[in-house]
Amino acid sequence: MIEESDELIVRAARALSGMPPTKAGAVARVLMAVRANQARPLPFWKRAMRRFDETSVSAKAAGLLMAASLVIGFFARGTVGNARDSFAGGSELSGTALQSIANMPAESRPVPVAVAVELANAKTVAVVGDFNGWDPSVTPMQRVGKDGPWSATVLAKPGRHTYAFMVDGATLVADPRAPRAKSSDFDGDASVMMVRTP
């Protein structure tokens, strides 16, 4: 066991422990932002996540099994090299949460897009992009097998999207299989995917 505490570290920690002054109105601004967010219509995938969360455990298990079967089916087709191809079979994703996809105009309907990357030494990988607010907590990737590629499915509207992979929560890596382009959200070398209208 490593014990790292000593006088200098305690002094350093104490120096960082002072509570910064809360600016006047800061809490009110937070609450206003929360209310503004509530008033804004949530994107489809967030509503789906909420509904998913409110479903029973057995329904969640069924959903997870279905998602797992999609991932397995994806790799069984041997299409790792075309990992950004969109799923054509959206109807396979049954459930109340996904029903609203079918009700949306095709040109704005989010499309499940499978993404995969080989990062042998990574401990965690998340796909981040303009479709999920560049938030690494939204779409963590799962490893296929012990040493296989990392994969995930994102929901993205038809059109051009920029994305990258967040490795071990600290390093952004572009997709080696995808073209690259500058992005205002990224440091000049984001990957690009084109999502077709289903």
């Binding site: 981040v128 690494p136 600290a170 440091d187």
Partner: peptide
């Protein structure tokens, strides 16, 4: 982490 990733100023210190 997201802000650091998006903030070019901090790019150099998020690398291993």
């Amino acid at each position: 982490r997201t802000l650091m990733a998006r903030n070019r100023r901090h790019r150099s210190v998020i690398e291993y």
